[in-house]
């Protein structure tokens, strides 16, 4: 409640230069019986598309009674190509899809998608939010990536694509064939959005004071545990940890554990209001 006076009313630049409309891919799985649960909107990170959640999490959430939606940011998956997309355009995409859902949504962001969600939270009063292995940028994350995967990371610094490796994304438990299949589907984010991970100012405070859950893996080769702690502290909590999993928790071998934890939390957590 402390940062509330930071509310920004004047948005001259956004009003005079609205984000250009783009066609977006949204996949969904809805429970057979409407149980009045809030809809979930899964937001994939850079390079990933809605497919990453369609693989396991979407159906699993629906089987537990939550209407579940997964979107692809512009330039990803089956959404419209957008090589010049900015972080602001991505946040706009999330708010557009969220506001188009029948009821107030829970935003679930993964990787850099968690940063996009953090920005979207300042523009849409989500019921609650979940940040999965959040990549909030900064030089520390770049350093870790350069150490672990120099050849895949270095080109991104100069505006080229970011190529994540199997070792960064998945644990050894995931069969090789499956890992290769996922990696083959990876695309890339816009240059400007990639650079934003280095220098973009922090997201404004969320509107509507939604509860926020942060989770990740201590064995994530992209997001160090210190980052998880820092992000969770920002939202006044501690991260939920799933040891032994890679960065892509929704695709890794033990994908069911984190999504069950998220759904349990949503069932327990009283709505923000």
């Amino acid at each position: 409640m402390s940062a509330r006076s930071e509310l920004r009313i004047m948005r001259g630049r956004e009003w005079s230069r609205p984000v250009r409309a783009a066609r977006r891919e949204v996949l969904s799985a809805t429970p057979e019986l409407e149980e009045g649960r809030p809809p979930l909107l899964f937001v994939p990170g850079f390079g990933h598309g809605a497919w990453a959640f369609a693989e396991h999490w979407l159906g699993h959430a629906a089987s537990r009674g939550f209407p579940a939606y997964a979107m692809s940011l512009r330039g990803h998956g089956a959404s419209e190509p957008a090589p010049e997309a900015s972080l602001r355009a991505y946040a706009h995409d999330v708010v557009q899809v969220a506001a188009g859902l029948p009821r107030q949504a829970v935003l679930v962001g993964h990787g850099a998608g968690a940063l996009v969600v953090a920005h979207a939270l300042a523009r849409y009063p989500a019921r609650s939010a979940v940040l999965v292995a959040p990549v909030f940028g900064g030089w520390g994350v770049l350093g870790a990536a350069l150490r672990r995967n120099p050849s895949g990371t270095l080109p991104a610094v100069f505006g080229g694509p970011l190529r994540l490796s199997r070792g960064q994304l998945f644990s050894r438990e995931l069969p090789d064939a499956e890992a290769r299949r996922h990696i083959a589907r990876l695309g890339r984010a816009g240059r400007r959005a990639q650079w934003a991970l280095l220098g973009e100012p922090e997201a404004e405070p969320a509107v509507g004071a939604p509860p926020v859950l942060v989770l990740g893996s201590p064995d994530d080769r992209v997001v160090p545990t210190s980052t998880l702690n820092r992000v969770a502290r920002r939202y006044g909590s501690a991260p939920l940890l799933f040891p032994g999993m890679g960065h892509d928790l929704m695709l890794d071998a033990r994908w069911a554990e984190p999504i069950d934890a998220i759904l349990d939390w949503l069932e327990k957590e009283p709505a923000a209001h």
């Binding site: 009313i9 948005r11 609205p18 409309a21 706009h92 506001a99 188009g100 009063p125 509107v207 509507g208």
Partner: peptide, 15 residues
């Protein structure tokens, strides 16, 4: 136009 008309936390559809 739309940016000036919508509620600031519930945008009108892009379409």
């Amino acid at each position: 136009s739309k940016p000036f008309t919508q509620f600031p936390d519930f945008p009108m559809p892009d379409s």
